[in-house]
Simulated assay, not measured.
Amino acid sequence: MDRFSSLTVFRRVIECGSFSAAARDLNYSNAAVSKMVKDLEAELGAQLIVRTTRSLHLTDIGRTYFDQVSDLLDGLAAADEQVRAETGTPRGRLRVAAPMSFGLATVAHMLPRFAARHPEIRIDLVMNDRFVDLVDEGFDLAIRGGALADSSLRARKLHDIRRVLCAAPDYLSRHAPPATPEDLASHAGLVYTGAQTPDVWHLRQGVRQAAIPVRSVFRANSSLAVREAALSGLGVALVPDLYVRDALSSGTLVQILPDWEGAPQALHALYPAHREQSLKHRLLIDFLVGEFAALGPAPA
């Protein structure tokens, strides 16, 4: 048995959550993945994974073994990266997590440029709104907005996201534009349900603040869906400026109460501390910093 391949397969089965997903990721057959894990368990004389028809999970000894194997494989990868740093040839896989809407609107457009610049690096982008555990799930980097929780993760700031109020000209032709934040309470609200307080918009103008109850006519767990509802003329939206810059420039959306906006949200790249020595990881971080810097501040 090729021990290195078996350990790699074992780790990917846990990270991917199933034998079939690991097989697709590693370009192996399902039978080969299953056999390699069974052979590994036989050689160790211990069951590492409990399998059911719908799920799998690690045994207690399997969890300990997984952590130790992950550290070992990460150490080998770091050693490889050190050599490649000297030769200037970064290669390997980078697994990146990003929120769904933000990933679709920005990251999905950026990463292909990085991949074209570094053809030996394979990008694995996973987009969802679940809070992923970078270490346990084998991610190299996650892009997240909001306050950072205390953790062992390293962080690099990428951008400050503004959230602006906007509506379509058609909607504003049928409803008097609000003159004050309080006027928003009588307007049709388009609500992003993933916000901390979706039914109350917290706005600020310098040191002044306002909490406005929203009369929602449309609710979605995606800011991109909220933007589309706004473009259709359905109501007023409070959305990240990155999602509506083109629409505001073209006039298909109009900014409302431009002196008022939602609290800014810092966007960070988060990564495990042991990834700092990886050349391909440093290249990706520097690339993302440059890409977001090129966006510039949102137009006031």
Score class of each variant (00 low, 15 high):
Q47D: 11
L48Y: 03
L48R: 01
V50R: 09
R51F: 04
R51G: 05
T52I: 00
T52M: 03
T53S: 15
T53W: 12
R54G: 12
S55R: 14
L56E: 08
H57F: 15
H57Y: 15
L58P: 08
T59Q: 01
G62T: 04
R63K: 15
R63T: 14
R63P: 05
T64Y: 09
Y65P: 05
D67M: 09
D67F: 04
Q68I: 08
Q68T: 12
V69N: 03
V69T: 14
D71R: 14
L72Y: 14
G75Y: 02
G75M: 02
A77M: 08
A77R: 11
A78M: 12
A79C: 07
D80V: 15
E81F: 00
E81P: 04
V83F: 08
G88E: 00
T89N: 09
R91E: 15
R91P: 00
G92R: 01
R93L: 10
V96K: 01
V96W: 01
A97L: 02
M100D: 11
M100C: 08
F102N: 05
G103I: 03
L104A: 10
L104C: 03
V107L: 15
H109I: 06
M110E: 04
L111V: 12
L111I: 10
L111T: 07
P112I: 02
F114H: 03
A116H: 11
R117H: 09
H118F: 15
P119S: 03
E120K: 13
R122L: 11
I123T: 07
I123P: 05
I123V: 12
L125I: 00
V126N: 09
M127R: 13
N128P: 01
D129C: 00
F131P: 10
F131K: 11
V132Y: 02
V132W: 04
V132K: 04
L134A: 04
V135T: 11
D136W: 11
F139W: 02
D140H: 12
L141W: 07
L141Y: 06
A142Q: 07
I143M: 08
G145N: 02
G145P: 03
G145I: 00
G146I: 06
G146S: 06
A147W: 05
A149G: 13
D150S: 13
D150Y: 08
S151Y: 06
R154I: 08
A155S: 14
A155C: 10
R156Q: 13
R156I: 09
